[in-house]
Design a protein around this nucleic acid. Structure first.
Length: 297
DNA sequence: GAAGGTCAAAGGCTTACATCA
DNA sequence: TATGATGTAAGCCTTTGACCT
């Protein structure tokens, strides 16, 4: 897979230098960087990817890229009918520069930007377009009024939460149309509705896991108690056997066959291999509550 | 003011599906 | 027509960071 290629001919480019200024990133929105084979930019500040490109100060940056990135992007843009030069959605320099800011954001931005859609639900095309627009413009709102780009924590109002909860009760996933409608109703961005549902599903799952965990703990306790009880019972039977002067066959009705090991309970040894009916099982027989039927055998 | 909890959001990964050669 | 490669959408998981107690 090209690992044996001469590195000098690989087209890879490694640049160590200072990051772009605000002006650079905002006035010349570059096409998004690519991941995997087409990774073309890597900064040593993975955190706050959307903000790093907006700093007004210069900072060290590490750039790893393909020299053929541009041509690749042109191909890709053409293929996807994207025109990065005319800011397709919302005239959003933040979004566009964010592509440049972080390789981590690239894949996500490319997919989450969803500029080109081959949606299975074709009836939702307008919804999709609106959503794509929204996705592209959504991060504009991350920007404060004063132009800084600090990530603000959104707090949903009680009404919004209630409505979302009600909607979640009806269906815990949303199709694009539902999402758009709900977002409009709540005065939120579809992406926010989507995220809320995602986190809500995660919380539900976590809750269920906790419930399951509690249930299993109880099961464990019950089985432990049962195990103790059966061990005690076994000990009593052994004591009883030793106290008996001679073998006395037990009534058939009291004998039971363990389905896991085909041994007959009540003191009869397995397979008749033991000469003495009083002898113990020759090897230890561990109890596994998930595979064994009887804790006594 | 530090610590811990909550939760919106970001980024990465996986999967299913569509398209194309 | 069948098949593998590739791209896209969408969901899940993990982590981050703002905010609150």
């Amino acid at each position: 897979m090209g690992h044996d290629q001469d590195p000098s001919n690989s087209g890879l480019r490694l640049v160590l230098g200072l990051s772009l200024t605000t002006e650079e990133t905002t006035t010349s929105p570059s096409p998004p960087t690519m991941v995997d084979d087409h990774l073309c930019l890597l900064k040593p500040t993975p955190m706050k990817p959307y903000f790093s490109s907006f700093t007004t100060e210069t900072e060290p940056s590490l750039t790893l890229g393909l020299s053929s990135t541009e041509s690749y992007l042109k191909q890709h843009v053409a293929k996807n009918k994207m025109d990065w030069n005319h800011k397709p959605y919302g005239e959003d320099p933040v979004e566009l520069s964010s592509h440049e800011a972080s390789p981590h954001s690239v894949a996500s931005s490319f997919s989450s930007g969803r500029v080109v859609k081959r949606e299975r639900d074709l009836s939702c095309e307008d919804v999709e377009l609106a959503e794509a627009t929204e996705r592209f413009s959504s991060r504009v709102s991350d920007e404060d009024e004063d132009g800084t780009n600090a990530r603000k924590k959104l707090r949903l109002t009680k009404e919004q939460s209630t409505l979302l909860e009600e909607s979640f009760k009806q269906h815990n996933t949303l199709n694009p149309k539902q999402k758009q409608a709900l977002a409009r109703q709540l005065h939120l961005r579809p992406r926010q509705v989507e995220v809320w549902f995602q986190n809500r599903r995660a919380r539900t799952k976590l809750k269920q896991t906790e419930v399951d965990c509690e249930f299993l703990k109880k099961c464990c306790e019950t089985l432990t108690d049962e195990n103790k009880r059966l061990k005690k019972e076994l000990q009593e039977l052994k004591t009883l056997k030793l106290a008996q002067p001679m073998y006395m066959p037990m009534p058939a009705a009291t004998l039971s066959m363990c389905p896991s090991c085909d041994r007959i309970g009540g003191g009869v040894s397995n397979g008749g291999s033991n000469k003495s009916p009083f002898s113990m099982a020759p090897k230890p027989h561990f109890y596994n509550p998930f595979t064994n039927y009887s804790a006594a055998c």
